[in-house]
């Protein structure tokens, strides 16, 4: 069961929220914004903890590769609590998809995330009137997301 979906853009602001279950406690809009900002920062910092391979280190010093820790490289993937897990999938371009779900979702959540990324690139980014900084208000995207996640 998936409870909530959040999409956070490159700058760390929340561009999309959707609640699926009636059971979970809901946050207010403001709390969602704070949560999104916090996840964004924690994710970036956690990526800084990762070791860097030798090959990559050499490339970094020549300036032809990026340091680990910048967006799209590592960072936490799951936060686990007693009854639920918060999954975070970051695309190489730095968009984050956050799903709060029951614990019984295993690897399948990764496929769901990729499906979401596809839907996002098709129905959000290809809309000529969508501005990447703005919240996503698209009926067709809404429908596709519901179809994908409402199992």
């Amino acid at each position: 069961m998936i409870h909530t979906l959040l999409i956070i853009n490159q700058a760390g602001s929340l561009t999309y929220t959707k609640d699926f279950s009636n059971g979970a406690n809901k946050l207010t809009t403001n709390e969602y914004l704070i949560l999104a900002g916090t996840i964004h920062s924690v994710h970036a910092i956690s990526a800084g903890l990762l070791p860097v391979s030798k090959k990559k280190n050499a490339a970094i010093s020549r300036g032809v590769s990026r340091r680990s820790g910048s967006s799209g490289t590592g960072g936490f993937e799951v936060i686990e609590a007693q009854d639920m897990k918060l999954h975070c999938y970051e695309t190489p371009t730095g968009i984050k998809f956050i799903i709060v779900a029951d614990k019984n979702h295993g690897e399948s959540i990764k496929d769901t995330m990729r499906g979401l990324y596809l839907v996002y690139s098709d129905y959000v980014l290809k809309s000529p009137f969508y501005n990447p900084e703005m919240p996503i208000r698209s009926e067709i995207f809404d429908k596709k997301v519901s179809k994908l996640l409402d199992q």
Partner: peptide
């Protein structure tokens, strides 16, 4: 925009 399409 296309980069995300490619990556996805």
């Amino acid at each position: 925009r296309l980069i995300d399409d490619f990556l996805a």
